[in-house]
Amino acid sequence: MIGSTIIGMIILGLFQYLTSSWWWVIVIPFFSGALYREGMMKATIQGSLIGGIVWTGISVAQFFGSADIVSDKIAAMIGIGQPFLLTIITGVLGFLLGAIAANTGNAIKQYVFPVRQF
């Protein structure tokens, strides 16, 4: 699971960077869930880790890097007091999106390719 999660994280980061599209945080966990063989719960956790860690990690790096001023502005715009909360919101968003997408991917896979019980 760890290996595939890391691979998923790398692919997500790479695809988001190369295509400038945010929705890879849904697509990559979706396929990771669909390809996962060890049950829905683990697939969901893996998806959530892929989305959550990548989004949290990069946003924290941005916040402590060069995004301090823009964080202040966005925090003021959406009415949250602490700009650092933006990293938490970003991380939670990545975590939830990854989880829901992986869960859905896994459910569809199980429905389309049901595991036969002997």
Binding site: G13, Q16, Y17, S20, S21, W22, W23, V25, V54, W55, I58, S59, Q62, F63, G65, S66, A67, D68, I69, V70, S71, I74, L86, I89, T90, L93, G94, L97
Partner: peptide, 16 residues
């Protein structure tokens, strides 16, 4: 979703 994307969203409009 677009706005909070840590690579392409508002985070990219930083001091760099």
């Amino acid at each position: 979703g677009k706005l909070f994307d840590p690579i392409n969203g508002f985070w990219a409009n930083n001091r760099t």
